[in-house]
């Protein structure tokens, strides 16, 4: 079936099957920043924005994107690079495999919450698992990015 939607600000028409998930559709079309880390909707690697909200693209059926706006890290390259530079300066990208989904959640957090507390930051990012960094370095980077004073 055909869907018409906005992808990274571009009007897009794609053919999808009814049981296809967005993560697979995006990868198939060359959006290779989309990573899948689990089969159970609980790692956060595949996070993209649907109508601006961070959502698991592995769990969102592609046909449901009809009329919606989808954003991947490719679509917010500059904003992502700004945070990525801070993350990389901390060394907290490590293997990098979870970074795109993580960055998309961090940017969403910045858009959604004004002046978040440390607790709110942790809560917002809990759905993004990372096995390399132990989260501390990511947290330092996020705080620097958001201008939250380090404890």
């Amino acid at each position: 079936m055909q869907i018409e939607f906005t992808l990274n600000d571009q009007p897009t028409v794609w053919d999808v099957s009814p049981d296809e998930f967005l993560a697979d559709t995006l990868r198939k079309h060359g959006f290779l920043s989309i990573r899948k880390g689990c089969n159970t909707s609980c790692c956060g690697l595949c996070t993209v924005w649907i109508d601006g909200k961070p959502t698991l693209s592995c769990t969102a059926l592609s046909f449901r994107m009809q009329g919606k706006s989808v954003t991947t890290i490719e679509g917010v390259a500059e904003e992502a690079a700004e945070f990525a530079r801070i993350l990389v300066a901390e060394g907290a990208e490590q293997c990098g495999f979870c970074s795109p989904g993580f960055i998309m959640t961090v940017l969403a957090l910045k858009h959604e919450l004004a002046a978040p507390t440390e607790e709110e930051i942790v809560h917002y990012l809990t759905g993004n698992l990372c096995r390399c960094t132990g989260y501390m370095g990511q947290m330092r980077a996020v705080k620097t990015y958001l201008g939250v004073t380090q404890r």
């Binding site: 920043s33 690079a81 993350l87 990389v88 300066a89 060394g91 795109p100």
Partner: peptide
């Protein structure tokens, strides 16, 4: 910073 850091952090293939 890691020499490959920016590329892998921003989802390059």
């Amino acid at each position: 910073p890691k020499i490959d850091g920016m590329a892998i952090a921003t989802g390059k293939p």
